[in-house]
């Protein structure tokens, strides 16, 4: 049968997915119900304790902060990347290529390298504050990191090149006559982007924002390197619990809750966007 090979391939892919994704996930869910043992690791007895700890206020607080931070980061990434691509698409072919290469090379940098370079750029001894001080714009230049803003810069940097490169072909290849049509129909040139280009790309931008949201939820290095403790996201807390305290049950429980919250948010957004298009 012709279908045999594709079927086998499909089953293999499914098997790999199971082994590498579902099994660890299942393990995590199971562990999240174990009892943490301060003297050893955990006891394999069922308890809701780890989930109760989530609702203790602190983790709830951190979760809300995480969602807000990540959502803000995702929105900023997409807005900035979209604006940048609109600008780049207006340049000559040569310059477009130049910027695409810059973005590609940015994408090759690891999280840690990006984090470190911003750490240096924002430091008072070597970076922007020192420059501002030397130029006389800042009397007492101080390090700009760690701070919420520095962490946000880090998060935006992480997503920017990916989102830009996804958007570029669509933005550069769009039918410009639609925007011209809007002009002939009485839209002032500076409003065309807002009234026409943005709505046309809205679906794509929403999808990218959601993708970025999920991606940034898992970012660990930027909050630690560039953020203050009060900016740390749930990912930091989870890894602190699981690795730092060797409290795998609580870490797992927190991870499961984050997974559920992320899932619910994605589902709601998906349903909402379905309704919009319908």
């Amino acid at each position: 049968m012709n279908l045999f090979v594709p079927r086998v391939l499909g089953m293999t892919a499914f098997g790999i997915l199971c082994v590498f994704f579902l099994v660890p996930l299942a393990f995590m869910v199971v562990v999240s119900f174990y009892k943490a043992d301060p003297m050893a690791f955990y006891q394999e007895t069922f308890t809701w304790e780890n989930y109760q700890k989530f609702f203790s206020g602190f983790y709830l607080n951190v979760t809300l902060r995480t969602l807000w931070t990540t959502a803000l980061g995702a929105v900023l990434v997409v807005i900035l990347a979209f604006t940048a691509m609109l600008a780049i698409a207006e340049l000559s072919r040569k310059w477009q290529l130049f910027w695409i290469l810059v973005l590609l090379s940015l994408m090759c940098l690891s999280e840690v390298i990006v984090g470190f370079s911003w750490l240096i750029l924002l430091s008072e001894s070597a970076g922007i504050p020192r420059l501002l001080g030397a130029l006389g714009f800042w009397d007492n230049p101080r390090s700009l990191s760690p701070s919420f803003g520095a962490m946000m810069i880090g998060l935006v940097m992480l997503g920017f090149s990916v989102v830009s490169l996804i958007l570029y072909p669509q933005v550069a290849g769009r039918d410009k006559s639609i925007e011209e049509a809007a002009q002939t129909l009485g839209t002032a040139p500076h409003l065309v982007t807002l009234y026409v280009t943005l709505p046309i790309f809205m679906q794509t931008l929403i999808a990218l924002t959601l993708t970025m949201f999920v991606y940034l939820l898992g970012v660990f290095v930027m909050p630690i390197m560039l953020g203050r403790p009060r900016d740390w996201t749930m990912t930091v807390m989870i890894s602190d619990k699981a690795l730092g305290d060797a409290n795998l049950p609580l870490g797992s429980a927190l991870a499961v809750i984050m997974l559920i919250i992320t899932g619910v948010i994605l589902l709601i957004s998906l349903l909402a966007s379905r309704k919009r298009t319908a």
Binding site: S177, Q183, T184, P189, P199, I200
Partner: peptide, 21 residues
Amino acid sequence: LASHKRNIGMVFQSLALFPHL
């Protein structure tokens, strides 16, 4: 006079309909 103030109606080669409306 800027395009949006000329009050002209134009049909484009690509038609340029607003796909989201």
